[in-house]
Amino acid sequence: MTSADVHTASAAELDAMERRIAARFMHIFPWRMVLWGIGNCLLWLSLWPLVLKGVLPLWLGFVLATLTIALSYLPSHDAQHNIIARRGHRLRWFNEFVGYFSVLPLANSFRVLRHTHYEHHKYANEPALDPDYDVHAKNTWQFLLRHFAAPNLDRYGETLQRIGRTDVLMEGILFNAAYLLILFTLAWSGYALEAALLWWLPRHLALAYIRYYLSWMPHHPGEATGRYRDTRAFKSRLGNIGSLGMQYHIVHHLYPTIPLTHTPAAYRALKPILERRGCDLGNL
């Protein structure tokens, strides 16, 4: 495919070209995401005995906990899109296991994340229907203010009720209740500081970081809707790893079954087509 091909192609040819390129990056087993999801959660779990036994200082445990919790979402995100194994595949159970296990540090139900995330894909940037719409703010400072000072925590519950998945909502309530009961038990057993610095505070910081890079940055300013308009590419000052791979989030919204680790290559291959379609590619 040359640049001239892209510029002279009819709409139908362009669609076909786009799908052909994207298909090269699909149906790939995301082994790096699997290792990341399982390894990262085990690392976070290991912080507890290491800190409680005094092997690791609490301040270092806090730093590592914040890092691991911030990294816990993305492997589950690949599982949400059935990238590890689709429905009916013999490894389907493994897809669901990675989905649940990797987000344990976030104290979130995998199914809640999956069903609300599908609604986000369907209705990205639509004020009434996008479950992540509330993150939108004019700038980073406004985002942080909204996230920490006035979060709307009811949005996912409202979405699950709207789509008739009260069973999933119930699972989410159980996960959150279990999280609180573990925190309360640890705190009243004499480990309040440890619980605060290995889970409670790191989780809040990680959630802000995840929501900033996954929900706010790629959809900012949150006004455009439509397949080629609701998500943008951007160049992050923290680089691709520091921004959780979200510089290329536009590829994910167009082709959600491309593994996160392959979105940069897919973006480079699709870029001429995305340019012709008038997508917002920032300066990436």
Binding site: A177, F184, A187, G190
Partner: peptide
């Protein structure tokens, strides 16, 4: 029961109270 578990008062008794006590003891 759900409303109670997720209420700020439950959080203040269940988590903040022992946390503040432990911070005070440490300091």
């Amino acid at each position: 029961l759900i409303n109670w578990i997720f209420s700020p008062i439950a959080f203040s008794i269940g988590f903040l109270t022992p946390l503040i006590a432990q911070i005070c003891a440490t300091l």
